[in-house]
Deep mutational scan, measured.
Amino acid sequence: ETFPLDVLVNTAAEDLPRGVDPSRKENFLSDEDFKAVFGMTRSAFANLPLWKQQNLKKEKGLF
Results as ranks from 00 to 15, higher is better:
F63N: 15
L62S: 03
Q53A: 02
F3N: 05
N55A: 14
S23Y: 12
E32G: 11
G19E: 09
N27R: 11
Q54C: 14
F63T: 14
R18A: 15
R24E: 06
A46Q: 12
N47K: 15
R42D: 01
L56V: 03
V7D: 07
V37H: 05
R24K: 12
S23N: 14
V37A: 08
P17C: 08
A13P: 15
E26F: 04
E32N: 09
L56E: 02
A46C: 11
K60A: 13
V37I: 12
A36K: 13
K25W: 04
F28C: 08
R18G: 10
R18D: 13
D6K: 09
D33Y: 03
K35D: 11
Q53D: 00
R24G: 07
N47C: 15
D33E: 09
P22S: 09
G61D: 05
A13D: 15
P17F: 02
A44I: 10
E26S: 03
D31H: 06
L56Q: 01
L56I: 11
L48I: 03
L62C: 11
K57I: 09
E1V: 15
S43T: 15
F38H: 00
K60R: 07
V9P: 04
G19D: 08
R18L: 15
F34N: 00
N55I: 13
F63Y: 14
T2Q: 08
G19I: 11
L8F: 02
K60H: 12
K57G: 01
P4S: 06
K25F: 06
E26W: 01
V20A: 05
V7E: 08
K25S: 05
D21R: 03
P22E: 08
K60Q: 06
V37R: 01
A44H: 10
V9D: 05
K58Q: 10
E26K: 02
A13Q: 11
F45V: 00
K52Y: 12
F63L: 15
W51F: 09
F28M: 06
E14N: 11
P17G: 06
A12D: 10
P49L: 01
V7C: 13
P49W: 00
N10H: 10
P49E: 07
F38G: 00
V7P: 03
F38K: 00
K35C: 13
T41M: 07
K58L: 08
V7W: 12
A36E: 13
F3S: 03
L29K: 01
E59W: 06
E59Q: 10
E26T: 03
F28I: 03
L50W: 10
P22Y: 02
L8R: 03
N55Q: 14
D15Q: 11
K58S: 08
V37S: 03
F28Y: 15
R18K: 15
L16I: 06
F34E: 00
R18S: 15
S30V: 02
T2A: 08
S43V: 13
F38N: 00
N27W: 11
S30T: 11
F63E: 15
Q53I: 02
A46M: 12
F45C: 01
F28G: 04
G19P: 05
E26A: 03
T11E: 07
Q54W: 11
K58I: 14
A44M: 12
A12I: 09
E26H: 03
R24P: 03
L50T: 10
P17S: 04
V20Q: 05
W51H: 10
N47T: 12
D15E: 10
E26G: 03
M40P: 00
L29Y: 02
G39W: 01
E1I: 15
T11Y: 06
T11V: 14
M40R: 01
T2E: 06
E26M: 04
G61H: 05
F28P: 02
L8T: 04
S43H: 14
V20G: 04
A44L: 08
L62N: 03
P49Y: 01
S23T: 14
D15C: 14
L62V: 06
D6V: 09
Q54D: 15
G61I: 02
L5D: 03
L62Y: 10
Q53F: 00
D31C: 07
D6N: 13
K57P: 00
K60Y: 08
V7S: 09
A46K: 12
S30W: 01
K25L: 15
Q53S: 01
E32V: 09
K25H: 05
M40G: 00
A12G: 09
N10C: 13
E26Y: 02
K52I: 14
D15W: 07
V9W: 03
F63M: 15
T2Y: 15
R24Y: 12
F63C: 15
N10I: 07
